[in-house]
């Protein structure tokens, strides 16, 4: 599968990755190689194989619905770059 530099720029934007103009050709080429591998996998006939969503042959363990955590805001916020009145502060988001 061939990948265009525009495809790479779109994926980079969605993943919030900055790729410089000079790196773009090389990243595009490598990106294409990865997808080439996926194309190769796609040639295998998996018609009779049950889809696997997790490599472990187990199912989810559940926990009882109980509150086991108490307020630990002070500790948890200690490393936040900015906070005020109990809120984490981030650059203004405008909708």
């Amino acid at each position: 599968m061939s990948v265009s530099p525009q495809d790479v720029e779109k994926v980079a934007l969605l993943a919030r990755l900055a790729i410089s103009e000079s790196d773009l050709p090389e990243v595009t080429e490598r990106f294409g190689r990865v997808l080439g591998l996926v194309d190769e996998l796609n040639t295998i006939d998996t018609e009779t194989v049950v889809p696997m969503s997790n490599p472990h042959d187990m199912h989810q363990r559940l926990r009882p619905d109980a509150v086991t955590r108490q307020n630990d805001r002070e500790n948890l916020m200690a490393s936040a770059p900015a906070q005020d009145q109990g809120y984490f502060l981030v650059p203004k988001v405008i909708d």
Binding site: D84, Q85, Y87
Partner: peptide
């Protein structure tokens, strides 16, 4: 929740 109106320069986040 994002709190937009309580702070002038920033947005407050309550998780």
């Amino acid at each position: 929740k994002s709190v937009h109106d309580a702070f002038s320069q920033e947005t407050g986040i309550d998780l």
